[in-house]
């Protein structure tokens, strides 16, 4: 049993290609899921790999390295369209979790209630995946394929998220419903990126809902229906939520989730629109 902590990405990919290793970064999902008796495979720690931590400009957008902590993101100087993502960052577990857990880990863990996924969907994030053979990019919506399932092949790892520049002047928000304020798993959540034209009408809308379907979902019909409206005129109707499939569990019933998320969404749009 080994603990690998390479400095270079090429070394990490080589170890990964050899098989029989589990990736670890912030550890905030790895440890709670660990069976008694400790890790069953060697661990590959990617937090020391050069160039993997931090938020930086890249051509036509922003790059979030795979080892970037949630608190790194909160501190990053980003345009207002990223306020929803930052608000979500502050809601991931607790400060302790945000200081360790990574943005990329949140998407790779692929929980239906992952706080980072709805805001990343509204920012049209792409996932950069590397393997010894090269890299590829996948839209986040295609990367997460189901509950705890992602489109990573053996030997592949996520190295970054890429977020294209949102329209100039766009604003954003995030709203999470939980049973308590801190350390809570979402019952439902919604993220939105909006832009208003000179007359105060919505001319860009991205809305995504989490914890109400196996994979967080963009509300395409709502986004289309909002265009040309003022934020206060937006009504969230059942047909806008048709793509959702919430479950009944200890945190809430499916019916409650649908009702709650409609209200959360309406409120968020008004709040973000009135900035």
């Amino acid at each position: 049993m080994t603990y690998h902590a390479p400095n270079r990405l090429s070394d990490a990919l080589e170890i990964l290609a050899g098989g029989g290793v589990s990736l670890i970064a912030g550890g905030t999902d790895v440890y709670p899921a660990m069976a008694p008796g400790g890790p069953k495979a060697a661990l590959l720690d990617i937090t020391r790999v050069e160039g993997l931590r931090g938020v930086a400009r890249s051509d036509g957008g922003w790059r979030i390295g795979a080892a970037t902590r949630w608190s790194d993101l909160v501190r990053a100087d980003l345009p207002p369209a990223f306020d929803g993502l930052k608000a979500a960052a502050r809601e991931v577990g607790s400060l302790q979790i945000q200081n360790a857990g990574t943005v990329a880990g949140n998407i790779c863990n692929a929980s239906p209630a992952a706080d980072g996924v709805p805001p990343l969907l509204t920012l049209e994030a792409e996932v950069e995946i590397a393997a010894l053979g090269g890299t590829r990019r996948v839209a986040l919506g295609d990367f997460i394929t189901g509950v705890r399932q992602v489109a990573l092949q053996p030997g592949e790892m996520v190295v970054a998220l890429h977020l294209p520049d949102p329209p100039e002047g766009a604003v954003a928000g995030f709203s999470k419903l939980g049973a308590r304020r801190y350390l809570v798993i979402s019952i439902a959540m919604v993220a939105a990126v909006l832009r208003l034209d000179g007359a105060g009408r919505i001319d860009h809308a991205r809305v995504a809902v989490g914890a109400c379907s196996p994979v967080a979902k963009r509300l395409d019909a709502l986004e289309a229906g909002m265009l040309g409206l003022r934020p206060g005129e937006v009504m969230v109707r059942p047909e806008h939520l048709a793509g959702l499939a919430p479950i009944d569990d200890v945190r809430g019933s499916a019916g409650y989730r649908l009702e709650a998320v409609a209200e959360l969404t309406g409120r968020l749009i008004r709040e973000v629109g009135h900035g």
């Binding site: 550890g27 790895v30 302790q96 200081n99 360790a100």
Partner: peptide, 26 residues
């Protein structure tokens, strides 16, 4: 041992983290 209670909080380079969720090698 799951990051839910925070009793194990320590400062790592000044930042609070749950020491139960951190690989000691880190």
């Amino acid at each position: 041992n799951a990051g839910d209670c925070g009793a194990c909080t320590v400062l790592v380079d000044g930042a609070p983290v749950c020491s139960c969720l951190m690989a000691a090698q880190q």
